[in-house]
Design a protein around this nucleic acid. Structure first.
Ligand SMILES: [Mn+2]
Ligand SMILES: [Mn+2]
Ligand SMILES: [Mn+2]
Ligand SMILES: [Mn+2]
Lengths: 220, 220
DNA sequence: TAAAATTTTTAGACAAGTCTAAAAATATTT
DNA sequence: AAATATTTTTAGACTTGTCTAAAAATTTTA
């Protein structure tokens, strides 16, 4: 079967797929509505449509999950999104906080070979500018282990490998704080009251809220 | 006033603008319908809408013309289209017959600086892969003089500078015939009956129909 | 210039995707 | 196990862009 999906359908599939990956469970209507910034009733309509096309499995009142066909479409949209983000940052020299909304449009361009040629031109990158893994041509994607800065113990050091939130405001905050991918962070203290953290970054000390620390992926 | 136009609106504006440039006269509903591959009634609806927005001037039963606001949007869509075609051919190494339909989608991506950054990355090209002039940042566009191969006299020589038809089938024919931009062509004879032409291209002689010769822009 | 042909517009319908408000089902409290 | 609260679905409406068929205007022909 040949799938020529609308942008809306692709966006919903991506949302259902990624919430499903995060939680491991069946995805609720309201969770989808929240992610898609739309109303539950619109979600119900779309889920029905995707279910009719065999792209999601849906049990009334019990939420939805992508099928394998649905997953492969969602993953290829993610691949396209992340490669375009690489292009925008590496080739066109956008800042990492400017590219998400543009990639949100570019990911839907229909062409048999466009994304693969882009991949080749970019020299087959493994991660996008926000540290998210890029699926390969066959849809194989590495799932990283989701260690957040918020779970690092006092005195321990780690390296920033990704951001959970790609919003412009969060990324601008990180720019100002001197935090970027690959940067080494040492956790000095964690405040018991609000879980805010004192961090040492290149011999400067700063304090960040839990809101910040739970949106940064780190390793080691 | 801020214009956030739909893809359909941008495509109609481009069509009305380019037919208007070609003919110099007010553009008929049926001409637009033909170019847009749609029905006259749909054109009437859209022309009304564009007229309400002040982007075209329309007199009932008398056709439409873009206003200066409409023209500047049409030209900036053309600029985007042609720069993306350059990118696809020069950077991603597509053949010139593969890029039109992809650029038709890419031209509608909304971003304040994307097209200008692309322009810079491509080193400010003046022509797209089909020989069409690329408007600059301010919407200034060179209009070339439209000399067709079909109007060249026997014994005269000329150089191919553009194609009027960007369809894949026409461009593939040209590839097979060894005709590309910059190629020198000598007209040997013109058949009186069907205006077919005998051409000499790099010491090979070929015959082409009027259909072909009237779709090639040449100079000298 | 009147009849015929053509072009353009109107009228009404439809599909996609969204929304609000109300009904139905499920989950949580007591 | 009811009563209450929450979630999800349905019902009906709206927008955008399209279509067919019919009416109206314009142009061409005779
Ligand atoms: Mn999207
Ligand atoms: Mn990203
Ligand atoms: Mn287009
Ligand atoms: Mn072109």
């Amino acid at each position: 079967m040949k799938f020529n999906l609308s942008q809306a359908e692709e966006n919903y599939l991506k949302a259902i797929y990624s919430i499903g990956i995060d939680t491991g469970k069946s995805v609720n209507t309201n969770q989808i509505a929240l992610k898609m910034k739309t109303k539950a009733s619109s979600v119900t309509d779309m889920v029905k449509k995707l279910s009719d096309k065999g792209l999601v499995e849906h049990k009334k009142y019990k939420g939805a999950l992508v099928t394998s066909k649905g997953e492969s479409i969602a993953v290829s949209t993610l691949r396209s999104h992340r490669l375009w983000e690489c292009f925008l940052v590496d080739t066109l020299e956008f800042n990492w906080d400017e590219v998400h909304d543009i990639a949100e449009q570019l990911e839907h361009i229909k062409s048999d070979s466009l994304v693969d040629r882009l991949d080749k031109f970019l020299n087959f990158p493994s991660y996008d500018p926000h540290g998210d893994p890029i699926p390969d041509k066959n849809g194989v994607i590495e799932h990283h282990k989701n260690v957040m800065l918020s779970s690092v113990d006092p005195e321990a050091s780690c390296i920033v490998i990704g951001v959970k939130d790609s919003s412009s405001s969060f990324l601008k905050f990180l720019d100002n704080a001197g935090i970027c991918l690959g940067k080494k962070i040492k956790v000095l203290t964690v405040e018991d009251f609000d879980q805010s953290m004192q961090l040492e970054i290149e011999s400067k000390v700063i304090t960040v809220s839990h809101q910040i620390s739970k949106n940064l992926y780190v390793k080691k």
